[in-house]
Design a protein around this nucleic acid. Structure first.
Lengths: 221, 221
DNA sequence: CGAGTAATTGAGAAAATTCAAAGATGGTGG
DNA sequence: CCACCATCTTTGAATTTTCTCAATTACTCG
């Protein structure tokens, strides 16, 4: 199985089509865990279809969403350092993932320099997206956070040859609030405000980005 | 030079003594940049003595401190993904660093499996500390953030065989505020409050952790 | 020693949260 | 197929935390 999935880790382009044809790896139902914090780390995982979130639970039981992972993106690299997963990953809709056994990845990286380099890059990208989130959480207002999230999903849609001006928010408002360090009420209020201002058209989980230019201005980007 | 510094990347224990005896690599004065965002990525760096911060500048010119790096810790892994550094690193006091040319690290990792594995682990640890910061920024109050930072520095002191109950905050209050997503006034107020409450004894940059137990309670840890 | 920078403290303002209630949505079984 | 229940979302009002602006005090280093 790993061999089918390895290209996902290797190739960052043109993954989407492949995803839509081949549906291998473990299928996950909405709400199902791919892995839980503390479980022995054996594999990293490529999301092939659907949507998953990575979460950490604070000492007082609150959930922090550290990332949403779309098709073509990789989860599980948090586990390499300590042989145990440091976060948990849950499907937000029916999703398919590819398992990439880490020991095989290590072997392959040992033999194939380009593979090693590529995996170093993947980890570096995770570091960068985490640090971008750190900056977002620390420096931006609620409006800026929401606008940034919408634009980030739009950009990822583009990479997957999907619409840049329409996003389906399969995650709940609570998940969004937990990702952006807000309350769900604030998230809801700001969607309403953006809607009223004509920046977006909200219809439940479906959001059209009407005024991309001003949305970018709000996101300060 | 790299060969002297590589053990730093390999060994995470007992680095301090080595640091205090051998002072190799590029010396940095306070305020001096180790590298800047956008520069070509060539090397990762091990901090051998002193203290550095990694920063990102937002589109509107604000500085986000994404990490403080103490002796024995590694910076620069943000650059691997795009061949350019994504952040800048500045010395907060006179510091010495070791340069580890990345191409040599790659070669070595190719030959020595344990080296490859160790470097994967180092990157995973960076991911984990970033995600811990994400959670701190998102879920914790100003008091909890400050208490957590003090305890984090204390824990790193312990690893370096320094005092667990005394920390020297070589970074400015502004740096602390930029790291924790607060204003410097709030940081200052909370130091004063903790001081008044007998949790710590603040004397400028010198802080004694008087009541570790209650400090841990405040940090919710 | 003094000028410039860094830190503290106070008071008022703003952003987001909390608490509360109503409204919408979606999945399930009759 | 539709009604119902549980869950999710929206909206409002009051509160709280942190920020902003402002002034004072303490350091630091030429």
């Amino acid at each position: 199985m790993g061999s089918i999935c390895l290209p996902l880790a290797l190739e960052s382009h043109d993954i989407t089509q492949l995803d839509e044809i081949v549906q291998r790896g473990r299928p996950l139902q909405k709400g199902e865990y791919l892995y839980r914090k503390g479980e022995k780390f054996e594999s990293i995982w490529a999301v092939r279809s659907g949507l998953v979130k990575a979460i950490r639970v604070t000492s007082d039981g609150l959930e922090q969403v550290t990332g949403f992972y779309f098709p073509g993106e990789i989860v599980g690299m948090d586990g390499i350092g300590s042989e145990k997963y440091a976060a948990s990953v849950v499907a937000l809709e029916t999703s398919a993932v590819c398992e990439i056994p880490f020991h095989r990845l290590e072997e392959l990286s040992q033999r194939v320099p380009s593979m090693q380099r590529h995996f170093f890059k993947l980890m570096s990208q995770e570091i960068n997206s985490d640090q971008q989130l750190i900056t977002l959480l620390s420096k931006n207002t609620a409006e800026e956070k929401i606008a940034s999230l919408l634009l980030s999903i739009s950009a990822r849609n583009t990479r997957r040859n999907l619409s840049a001006v329409n996003v389906r928010l399969q995650m709940s408002r609570t998940d969004i609030s937990n990702f952006l360090g807000l309350t769900l009420e604030t998230v809801s209020r700001i969607f309403s405000r953006f809607n009223k201002q004509g920046l977006i058209a909200v219809d439940g989980k479906n959001v059209d980005l009407i005024d991309l230019e001003n949305l970018r201005a709000v996101a300060k980007f």
